[in-house]
């Protein structure tokens, strides 16, 4: 009995949050043109959301690419097919690892910071103060951050894939002695621009949208206490990971499932 009550409360609560989140998204989208006009605010957010994330993206992409190169080589060499290494590395990065890992790193590096920042603005009553001064906090605080996240994600994902391919080259060609010409030519022969690269870009746009939405909503919706902000920050990372991985399956099924 008690269990059923809890289950009911939980489902009602999550439905309510989903509804509030959707209304919040609509309200932010309505203010996006305003955010484009306030170029200074957008620039600052592009810096803290995009530029500061480049470092972790480049380092992770390089190591992921090199590991792919090493592991792919070990598997392919059994079939005398190590010339296909470039194709393996590029396809796994461009289709899956680039967009997904970038979204997960983005949630950890930029999403959590967005949630904590907006949540703390609520705790210190800066949001209320803005409302008192007839400044729309959604337009001034949330919209530029949302737009910066949505714009940054595809660029970061493209950077991840390109650096990863280079990392695979370093490991495969530099370390293990795969033929460099074969690495690039096999890759170019098998990676299709529209079918593979552009689908990866579409994925990263969707992930950027979802990751930033979750981050700003959790911050704006956080209970204005210390504990509330810390929980909201954790929820941002966990929920983004769930949402990105689930969406990735759906998108992959649509794009590559024929």
């Amino acid at each position: 009995m008690n269990l059923l009550v809890r289950l009911g409360a939980w489902s009602l609560g999550s439905m309510q949050r989903l509804g509030r989140g959707s209304l919040f998204l609509l309200a932010v989208l309505w203010r996006l043109p305003g955010a484009l006009v306030q170029f200074r605010l957008l620039l600052g957010q592009l810096y803290s959301v995009g530029v500061l994330t480049v470092q972790i993206i480049v380092v992770s992409a390089l190591s992921v690419g090199m590991v792919l190169g090493l592991q792919g080589y070990n598997t392919l060499v059994d079939f005398n097919a190590e010339a296909s290494l470039g194709q393996v590395v590029a396809l796994s990065l461009v289709r899956e690892l680039g967009p997904v890992l970038t979204a997960l790193l983005f949630a950890g590096r930029a999403g959590s910071a967005l949630t904590a920042e907006i949540g703390l603005m609520k705790v210190t009553e800066q949001i209320s103060a803005m409302e008192m001064m007839a400044v729309d906090p959604l337009r001034r605080v949330v919209a530029p951050r949302f737009l910066a996240g949505v714009l940054s994600m595809p660029l970061l994902a493209a950077l991840f894939s390109a650096v990863g391919v280079f990392g695979g080259y370093l490991a495969g060609v530099g370390l293990l002695g795969v033929d460099g010409g074969a690495y690039w030519s096999q890759m170019q022969a098998k990676v299709d621009f529209y079918g593979d690269v552009m689908n990866g870009v579409v994925k990263s746009v969707v992930f950027g949208w979802v990751a930033t939405w979750i981050a700003v909503f959790e911050g704006y919706d956080a209970p204005p206490t210390n504990e509330g902000v810390s929980r909201a920050t954790t929820r941002t990372v966990v929920h983004t990971a769930f949402a990105v991985l689930a969406l990735d399956f759906v998108l992959t099924a649509i794009m590559f499932g024929n």
């Binding site: 894939s161 990676v191 593979d196």
Partner: peptide, 11 residues
Amino acid sequence: ALLVLALKVSN
């Protein structure tokens, strides 16, 4: 990076 993916990595 996108340009590299288009010209160097894909066909």
